[in-house]
Structure formats: C-alpha cells, structure tokens
Amino acid sequence: MKHYEVEILDAKTREKLCFLDKVEPHATIAEIKNLFTKTHPQWYPARQSLRLDPKGKSLKDEDVLQKLPVGTTATLYFRDLGAQISWVTVFLTEYAGPLFIYLLFYFRVPFIYGHKYDFTSSRHTVVHLACICHSFHYIKRLLETLFVHRFSHGTMPLRNIFKNCTYYWGFAAWMAYYINHPLYTPPTYGAQQVKLALAIFVICQLGNFSIHMALRDLRPAGSKTRKIPYPTKNPFTWLFLLVSCPNYTYEVGSWIGFAIMTQCLPVALFSLVGFTQMTIWAKGKHRSYLKEFRDYPPLRMPIIPFLL
C-alpha cells in the first residue's frame, strides 16, 4: 500500500511549517490536523484551516487524503483561524445574560430607577406577564442548547462571544429598562391586545421548539449528516411545506408577539434587527439546500412563505 507525503505551508508566506512522512492514504484531514498539532501545539485542530490552494476553501475534517486531487506528495496550505471557543459555551453565555439582566430590572434592584423604587413591584399585569415570557424564552434556549441542538461545527472564533453578548445583553437591558420602569405605560388596547400578543408568542414558541426537535431527529448524534427536513405529524412542522427555516419564522413571530404585548420600541427594534439577521441566515441555508439536494422542494422560500 502506497503512503503519502504531506507538506504543510503557510498560506500567506509559503513557508514550510511541517512535513509529514508515510501518511496513510485513508487518513482524514482531521487526522492530519492532529499530526500537525504534534509539531505545532500552539495551533490545536480547531484553529487550523487546511486547504489545497492558499486562497481556496477550507477542507472538511472528514475529507480523505486519497480522494483529494493531489499526488502522493501533497501540499496543503495552513491558515490560523485564531483562538476558538465551543458553540455550546457561546450559546449558554449569550442566553444566560439576558435572563439575569432582565430580572435585575424586573425586581428593580438599587441604583436603576431611584431609591424610592428599590425592590418595588409594578401594578401592571402586563409587566409581570412580559417577565414570565422573556424568562421562559431564554430558559427554553438554554435547555435546547444543552439537550436538543446538535452542532455541525464544534467551535467558533473567540471574538464572537463578545459580539454576541453585546447584542443580546445590550438589547435585554434596553428593553427591560423601559418595560419595568415605574412610569411604564400599558398597551393602548389593554387586555385584548395583551391576550392576542400572548397567543402569538406561545404559538410561536411551541412552533420553534417543534422545529428544533424535528431538525434534531434528522441528524444522528456525533454526525454531520444533512438531510432535507420534511413536515412530521406535528402540525407545527407543517411550515416546512413553505419555508426552509421555519425555526427562524417562529422565532421572529415570538418577538413580534412580545413587541405587541409590551408596546415597547426597543423590543420592536430588537425584532427588526433579529429578523434582518435571521433572513440572512435563512437565505444562506436555503441556497445550501438547493445546491446540495437536486430534489429539494421548489415551493419553499427561505423564511416567509411566498415572499422571502
């Protein structure tokens, strides 16, 4: 059985960083990364991007050496992705923050609204209902991160945790300040508006959870398998008939419901920014589905049925 020789060059300087002799033909890129780490321990596998061309796409960890368009002496180019952190850690951090930050404003801890309001309670029912909904949303997200989601990528750049936390924590503080303010004004149409908004919120939260469970069942634990998601017997998953990412559709719907319930401008802005970002993600995933699966359902749109 022939063996391969693998040289790894710096993608920027073309400097030879490592030479691997007698590499098995069936070795994966993940195994080559581990061998590279032995000579350069500062670059652990998650930091490494190996590619066939200095400006090309990163090879997948599961790619097999003998199936790549290389000879028995293969040249790979290395790029440092920077310090990495696990997706689970990032999600837990960015979701735990809003949960606790919101509660600080809800309980009106000292130095927020003035001494005479310390630890007082709002007289408006919608304020307490909003706290329950907000807390439920982020507790749900935390539990899904721990027990439901299966991540195709193990890590992301460390800098992302600061960007994500600034976004989630900042908006949580902004909306919580106004919703729990002693001078907060309840919704214009009173109980009817709150009940309608609560119904929207609850339905969308159930829908979002149902989609996450359906997506989880598509991917076996520990794998990166991708399949076309289809509706199940659960009615909340029937939205798969019309959109590629109904989890985002339901998520946006939840925040629209919360915005109607609280009639709070920061919540509306958070919903708008979230919708914009999720639309970008949904379009990317939709394109990926179309590219990977020739039999992908043609009627589906990325996030909004028939429109977007």
Results as ranks from 00 to 15, higher is better:
Thr262Ser: 14
Ser152Gln: 11
Leu104Met: 11
Tyr117Asn: 04
Ser152Leu: 06
Ala173Leu: 08
Val194Met: 08
Tyr95Asp: 05
Phe236Asp: 09
Gln48Arg: 12
His149Asn: 03
Val194Pro: 15
Gly274Ser: 09
His124Pro: 06
Lys195Tyr: 14
Phe171Tyr: 09
Cys245Ser: 08
Pro220His: 04
Asp295Asn: 08
Val243Thr: 14
Arg14Val: 06
Arg294Pro: 11
Cys165Ser: 09
Asn208Tyr: 04
Tyr44Asp: 14
Val273Glu: 11
Glu144Cys: 01
Val243Pro: 05
Leu17Trp: 13
Cys245Val: 15
Tyr4Leu: 07
Arg79Met: 14
Arg108Thr: 00
Ala130Val: 06
Trp169Tyr: 03
Leu20Asp: 05
Trp87Cys: 05
Gly114Ala: 09
Pro45Phe: 13
Arg219Cys: 00
His3Trp: 12
Lys33Val: 14
Tyr189Cys: 09
Leu59Met: 05
Asp21Lys: 13
Asp10Glu: 09
Glu94Arg: 03
Leu308Tyr: 14
His134Ser: 03
Leu265Pro: 11
Met175Trp: 02
Tyr102Gln: 06
Lys60Thr: 03
Trp238Glu: 14
Lys55Thr: 07
Leu99Cys: 10
Glu7Tyr: 14
Arg14Gly: 09
His134Leu: 05
Arg216Trp: 07
Phe119His: 05
Val194Ile: 15
Leu242Ile: 04
Asn208Glu: 15
Asn160Val: 15
Gly190Ile: 14
Pro298Thr: 05
Gln277Tyr: 13
Leu218Pro: 06
Glu31Gly: 10
Ser86Thr: 14
Glu292Trp: 04
Arg123Gly: 14
Phe111Leu: 11
Ala268Gly: 14
Ile260Phe: 07
Ser58Trp: 06
Phe270Leu: 07
Ile132Cys: 01
Tyr296Trp: 03
Leu307Pro: 07
Thr37Tyr: 15
Asp21Leu: 07
Ala74Thr: 06
Gly170His: 01
Thr75Ser: 07
Gln263Glu: 09
Tyr4Trp: 04
Ser223Trp: 13
Pro98Phe: 03
Ser254Trp: 06
Ile179Val: 13
Gln48Asn: 07
Ser254Tyr: 03
Thr145Cys: 10
Leu146Ser: 07
Lys233Ser: 03
Leu269Ile: 14
Lys12Gln: 03
Leu307Glu: 02
Ala191Ile: 03
Ile132Thr: 11
Ala197Gly: 14
Pro305Ala: 08
Trp169Leu: 06
His115Lys: 00
Lys195Glu: 10
Ile211Asn: 05
Pro54Ser: 10
Gln48Trp: 10
Thr39Pro: 08
Trp169Gly: 09
Phe36Leu: 10
Trp43Asn: 04
Thr279Ile: 12
Val194Asn: 12
Trp255Arg: 04
Trp87Arg: 03
Gln84Leu: 09
Ser244Cys: 12
Pro246Arg: 08
Thr262Val: 09
Leu59Ser: 05
Thr225His: 13
Ala11Met: 11
Thr166Trp: 11
Arg300Gly: 04
Ile29Cys: 12
Arg14Pro: 06
Met301Leu: 09
Thr185Val: 04
Leu299Met: 06
Arg14Lys: 09
Ile139Leu: 01
Met175Asn: 13
Leu272Thr: 01
Tyr168Phe: 00
Arg123His: 00
Arg14Phe: 13
Pro187Trp: 03
Ala176Arg: 02
Met156Arg: 02
Leu35Asp: 14
Phe119Ala: 00
Lys2Thr: 06
Thr166Leu: 00
Gln193Tyr: 04
Val90Ile: 08
Ile303Ser: 07
Phe91Ile: 13
Lys233Thr: 11
Lys233Gln: 09
Tyr178Cys: 12
Ile203Ser: 09
Pro187Ser: 09
Tyr177Ala: 06
Lys33Glu: 08
